[in-house]
Design a protein around this nucleic acid. Structure first.
Length: 243
DNA sequence: TATAATGTTTGAAC
DNA sequence: AGTTCAAACATTAT
């Protein structure tokens, strides 16, 4: 369900609860629920795919993983991992990872690595890529310490747009091309956000889960690539392999 | 019914 | 000691 842009939407949808007191906190997550009940929810933040619920002195970190779901003022039959009840409604999370982070959030997160954050820093990303010339670009794009928020859809769409083969080695890709990849990453991520809001994300896929290249009409290759072995959809003819 | 899918962490194995 | 890898988690649609 979630790549970075989807978590931005999640945050927008729950803004109504910011500043409100928690009446009760419950669920199957192995955290101390007593820490939350009665406290005032200061703010919601996001870092890539991490959804952050901030309180004075600590933060609840939610990661929706592959199948995570959240419901606002609704419940499933299934017991939630975390359920927060406010004076103006409730927020329920299912099938996700829930953790409690103590203290200052800044000690956990590098905000310049989050593609959706205002502090995103392309130069910092470029520097990090230079340190791993032997890695494949398909793996690097999924590296959350470099491109926090990028997932398999964004990876595939970006590489198709810039015409780079997913198994290309970072050190062999020309510098201007690296710059282009980073730039396109940001451009596509915000288009993802836009299209997701309009509920038309899949309509615009040119690579992800596609069968044919719209540029040359040849069949796409589907292959688990890199050390991460995540599915890549690409055109052998249009996407150049740097090796 | 088996499979695959927008993901990460953990700990064993090498 | 550092890396690699499979397992675990869990849900829904095809």
């Amino acid at each position: 369900m979630p790549e970075g842009p989807s978590i931005i939407i999640l945050r927008e949808e729950v803004m109504q609860f910011e500043g409100h007191k928690i009446f009760s906190a419950s669920g199957s997550a192995k955290i101390d629920m007593d820490r939350i009940a009665g406290k005032k929810l200061l703010s919601f933040k996001t870092w890539g795919k991490n959804f952050l619920i901030c309180f004075s002195g600590f933060t609840i970190k939610i990661h929706l993983l592959m199948f995570g779901v959240y419901l606002i003022n609704k419940r499933k039959k299934l017991e939630p991992k975390l359920s927060l009840v406010f004076d103006n409604g409730e927020l329920n999370f299912y099938t996700c990872s829930v953790k409690l982070l103590e203290g200052d959030l800044n000690q956990y997160y590098d905000w310049t690595a989050d593609i959706m954050n205002e502090n995103w820093d392309s130069k910092a990303a470029k520097k990090k890529l230079e340190e791993i010339p032997q890695k494949m670009i398909c793996d690097a794009l999924l590296e959350q310490d470099i491109f926090s928020g990028v997932g398999n859809i964004i990876k595939n769409e970006v590489l198709y747009r810039v015409k780079v083969h997913p198994e290309s080695l970072i050190g062999k890709i020309p510098k201007p091309k690296i710059t282009e990849i980073i730039k396109e990453n940001i451009i596509y991520s915000f288009q993802f956000l836009d299209w997701k809001r309009k509920n038309e994300l899949a309509k615009h896929w040119l690579a992800y889960s596609q069968k044919t290249c719209v540029r040359c009409n040849l069949p796409f290759v589907k292959k688990d690539t890199g050390l991460k072995k995540r599915a890549s959809f690409f055109c052998n003819h249009c996407q150049k392999l740097y090796e």
